[in-house]
Design a binder for these strands. Structure first.
Lengths: 197, 197
DNA sequence: TAATATCGCTAACGGATGTTAGCAAAGATA
DNA sequence: TATCTTTGCTAACATCCGTTAGCGATATTA
């Protein structure tokens, strides 16, 4: 009988969620089957249900844990006594690092949230909308300060967030530049596109 | 008996492909069923097979028609006697307009190509890789000319392409700025992030 | 109008899917 | 060791999926 291996402070459920992130990233939520997931975990499909309620629950966990991390970060950054452009840069660096280090979860949260079911779906969409508005507000402030070019702030947010999701391609590419170089390049281009010269 | 309505020069297959693009965009390729598609077309699922060979064929058509449009455009732009930064701008404007006007096809091609089956899959990935390299080469040339900042060209390409895919959010947003404004904002930020001041 | 090709329908297929029931093995606790 | 809880297994379910066969209806052509 093959047991799910756990280490200290990592529940069997956590193991499943982590493997699910990798699988959902690779195949997409719909195309990834519970039998696929079971195989990745090293167990039969039915056994998964001793630890989780449903396939969608896995998606909930992934989407909301990622969303919460970003919400906490923007809370923190908004409160700091620094320039708007510095706030934007800090937020971007956080996004970049999250995408570099927790790539699978972040990617899944970004691409597969459509498959959430209500009420989680509306909830997630709301959080997302609010987050983007707060991000846009920081940029708007920077425009008023003349730190940032006169641009449409929501469009800028949209560009920043989607640009960062391109790190997915970096992960899959064979000849990667280092993570640090990637971060600096992205900041150079994105912040460089915003600042008022 | 409900027939698929066609207009002049539009085959029934074209009608199906177009509806498929909308459906695949909305639900994702895997989650969109042939019965969904049939309903959107106004016909029974089995009837679709009088016009198409398979569900995947729909994806082929969408992915490759989009890819071909971009390849033709980059052919054209490479040959023009203009500065590197002007080439980048032209290419970006093309991407932006494609995403604005043929949003559903472009989006599907971008997000759902993973579900292609070999040999189409490898083929598509190759075309994509080559396209990005050609795009990167234009940027690289601009860096040598000192028109463009010293950045990692592949990373810049990645940012540009993904940033543009953010237009999807613009499409779904309720209070949109105009398409023309969107284009100018994106060019301002993205080209502004590249040019060497 | 008669002959032919096109198109849409119903019915059904084989297979994959998420999930449940019920039992057995293993670990934890006493 | 005896008891209880946790975990995994096999088997099976209902449902959905893409797709095919075969027939009748409709449009096209002569």
């Amino acid at each position: 009988m093959a047991r799910i291996k756990t280490e200290k402070n990592i529940s069997r459920k956590d193991v499943i969620v982590t493997k699910a992130a990798a699988l959902f990233r690779e195949k997409g939520f719909k195309a990834a089957s519970m039998r696929d997931l079971a195989e990745a975990v090293g167990v039969e499909a039915a056994s998964l249900y001793n630890h989780i309620k449903s396939k969608t629950e896995l998606l909930h966990e992934l989407c909301f844990s990622v969303a919460n991390r970003f919400l906490h970060k923007i809370d923190e950054i908004e409160a700091e006594p620094i320039s708007s452009i510095a706030k934007v840069e800090k937020l971007l660096r956080f996004h970049i690092n999250e995408m570099i280090m927790h790539y699978e979860e972040v990617y899944v949260s970004d691409r597969e949230w459509k498959h959430l079911a209500d009420p989680y779906l509306s909830n997630f969409q709301n959080q997302r909308r609010i987050y983007r508005k707060r991000f846009a507000a920081i940029i708007e402030k920077g425009i008023q300060n003349k730190e940032i070019k006169k641009i449409d702030a929501p469009t800028a947010v949209l560009i920043m967030l989607h640009a960062i999701s391109g790190i997915e391609s970096w992960h899959r590419s064979t000849q990667k530049i280092s993570a640090a170089e990637l971060e600096e390049n992205m900041i150079t281009i994105l912040v460089g596109g915003l600042v008022n010269h």
